[in-house]
Structures are given as structure tokens and as C-alpha cells.
């Protein structure tokens, strides 16, 4: 570990990062968006450690959300969207969990959730927007009253007020800030000084990280300070926001990571098929999560053929010509 003295105390394995920071009942935010940069390696480890009653807070999420919900780790969900694009227009286990009343859930929109993370990051209690006026998002509260008394749960879903700066009728929606216990992101690079660099779109990752009490970063690689500080305009988070760093190459598989690898269409299709059936889904978890001894074992199961197929062209950022049916 002395190879990276500046981050030695924060550099750890998946098992330690999860056992130290992801507790039963914690409020958790995960980075990425639908089929890109989901922190999958950590999600699988959360499932393996059988963490329960997680309160998951999401904007638009896909694969990690669905695995965590399907494995029974999530008790409560605040969400804008659960889908894997063309590979599952609605996430399958998410859909089943709601239809079977297995989790408590509350709907918001993407922009609303992003603003709530931003408010948390800015240390302000709430934030106004026009989004939601007239929508049933503002007519249905998902959580029962007793939940609203808990720490980290807003005392109400939203409030409305008249614009105090206008003489004319002008209503706005006020949204409560989010301050998750933990945010988990997958990034391309972490510097050996702890600086985080996300390439491609950042979604709401940066707001989610700044809003949280603790931040776990998994990364494709750890790079020297001399590299990450040469072009600091490209960086996403300074070192002091980061509590745990885990190097996990291909750590977002089967979702994509810009510049490194594409999503894995074969795996996403296999997942959807198995998730549709309760027995097959249990088999999926046994085979791909519980039964996997290490991350190297997982990648061996994915196979060199697929690893090479999804490998991104480093100049283009994705894998051109990949069979995506």
C-alpha cells in the first residue's frame, strides 16, 4: 500500500469499503445513469454482504438499482426512473417489487432529484423549481407518515409557495435537500493524491458525492499526481470528498464506462431474461454474485471474448460496430 502513501488509509478492497460504510438501513446514492457507469462491483458486494433495508435515492438508474432491489437489499426507494434503455424499458425486478408492494417508494423527476442532491451539496434545506406543477408527482406521497419522522427522510415530499419576489401569481415547488449517508461512484481515474476524474458525462455524480456524508469511489485505474494535475480542468472531485478508493477495472460491467468499455448487450439481455422469472433470477444471483469468489473470477466468467468485444476504442470512446441487438 506504500505505493500510494497519500491515499494509503483510503485505499481498500470492495469488502472493506462496503463493511465499513454501507450499513443496514443506510441512505445510499449510486452514480451513473441507466446503462452507464453503474458502480456494479460495489453493488454485487453489497448483495454478497446481505446489507438490508437500504434507503436508495436515485434519479434515472438501471442495472445497479435493479440488482440491489432484486436481491432484497432495498427497503425504500426515492426514484425518477428505473430502466435500462432498449435492454429493459422498465427495470424488471424494480417493476416486480413495486407491483408486489415489496418496497416503499416515492416518485420524483430527474431534474427534481438532481436539484435535491444539489441542495444537499450546497447545505441548503430546500430548493425551488417549476417542475412538478400540475403533475401527479405532486399529488401522491409515497411514504407513510411514520417514515417521515426518520432522520434523513424529508418531513413531507414537497411544498408549494408563491414566488415572494413577484406581485403576480407565480407558484413554485419546493423540494427537500438530500444528504445521503453514502454515495458510491465509479470513475475512470483516481489520482494517487485522491483527485477523482470522471470522463464523458458526469450525470449528477458530482452533486451526489458532495451531498453525501461518505463517498466510495471505484475506479478503472489509479494514476500519478503528475498526470491528474497536469490538466486539472478535467477533474471532477478534490481528494477531501473521498473516503474510500477501490481499484476495480471493468467495475461498471455490464454497464458502460466512457473511453474504457461499452455496455455488454449479451449480459444485459441475459439479465432481463433471467430477471423475468423468480427462480431464474435466484440462479442469476447465485451464478453471478454469490458464487463469485473475486472480481477476477467475475471477469473470467464474462470471458475474454466479450471483454475484447466491448473494449472501447480509446479515441472514439465506445466500441464501434459492437453487435448491440
Amino acid at each position: 500500500m506504500n505505493r500510494y502513501p497519500e491515499i494509503a488509509d483510503r485505499l481498500m478492497g470492495l469488502d472493506e469499503a462496503v463493511s465499513r460504510f454501507v450499513k443496514n438501513g443506510c441512505q445510499l446514492a449510486i452514480g451513473g445513469f441507466t446503462i452507464t457507469r453503474n458502480p456494479m462491483a460495489v453493488a454485487y458486494e453489497i448483495v454478497r454482504q446481505r446489507v438490508k433495508d437500504i434507503h436508495l435515492v436515485c434519479h434515472s438508474h438501471g442495472q445497479a438499482l435493479d440488482v440491489l432491489v432484486g436481491a432484497g437489499c432495498v427497503g425504500r426507494l426515492e426514484i425518477a426512473y428505473g430502466g435500462n434503455g432498449r435492454y429493459a424499458p422498465t427495470c424488471v425486478r424494480f417493476k416486480k417489487a413495486i407491483q408486489r408492494s415489496e418496497i416503499q417508494f416515492e416518485d420524483y423527476s430527474n431534474y427534481q432529484m438532481s436539484l435535491r442532491f444539489l441542495a444537499g451539496a450546497l447545505s441548503i434545506p430546500f430548493i425551488p423549481t417549476k417542475s412538478g406543477l400540475g403533475s401527479d408527482l405532486m399529488n401522491y406521497e409515497g411514504f407513510p407518515a411514520e417514515v417521515r419522522k426518520e432522520e434523513k427522510v424529508a418531513s413531507r415530499k414537497y411544498a408549494k409557495m408563491a414566488n415572494p419576489f413577484s406581485e403576480d401569481w407565480d407558484e413554485v415547488v419546493l423540494l427537500p435537500a438530500l444528504t445521503p449517508d453514502v454515495t458510491i461512484l465509479h470513475a475512470q481515474y483516481v489520482g494517487d493524491d485522491g483527485t477523482v476524474r470522471i470522463k464523458g458525462l458526469t450525470f449528477a455524480d458530482i452533486e451526489q458525492a458532495k451531498a453525501a456524508d461518505r463517498v466510495i469511489i471505484t475506479c478503472e485505474d489509479i494514476v500519478p499526481r503528475s498526470f491528474i494535475r497536469t490538466d486539472p480542468d478535467q477533474n471532477s472531485l478534490p481528494p477531501f470528498f473521498v473516503d474510500a478508493i477501490v481499484k476495480v477495472p471493468y467495475g461498471a460491467h455490464p454497464t458502460a464506462c466512457y473511453g474504457f468499455y461499452d455496455y455488454d448487450p449479451k449480459h444485459l439481455n441475459l439479465y432481463r431474461k433471467m430477471a423475468e422469472d423468480d427462480t431464474l433470477f435466484t440462479e442469476y444471483l447465485d451464478e453471478w454474485v454469490y458464487g463469485v469468489g473475486s472480481w477476477e473470477d467475475y471477469l473470467t466468467k464474462v470471458g475474454m471474448e466479450m471483454i475484447l468485444k466491448i473494449k472501447a476504442n480509446p479515441v472514439i470512446g465506445y466500441a464501434p460496430g459492437l453487435d448491440r441487438k
Binding site: F33, T36, R37, Y111, G200, F203, I206, Y318
Partner: peptide, 24 residues
């Protein structure tokens, strides 16, 4: 053609890659 709005193909050859707050 992108298969999702977070597809890597929406990040390639752009004038700018940003995030949700900027998009809205």
C-alpha cells in the same frame, strides 16, 4: 444510434459533455 440516453454514443463528438443540471 444510442440505445439509451446515457449511451456512450451521446458523449462522442459533442460540443460539450456535462450533466443533468446543465441539461435542464
Amino acid at each position: 444510434i444510442p440505445m439509451a440516453v446515457a449511451d456512450l454514443r451521446v458523449m462522442a463528438g459533442t460540443s460539450l459533455n456535462s450533466g443533468l443540471i446543465e441539461a435542464f
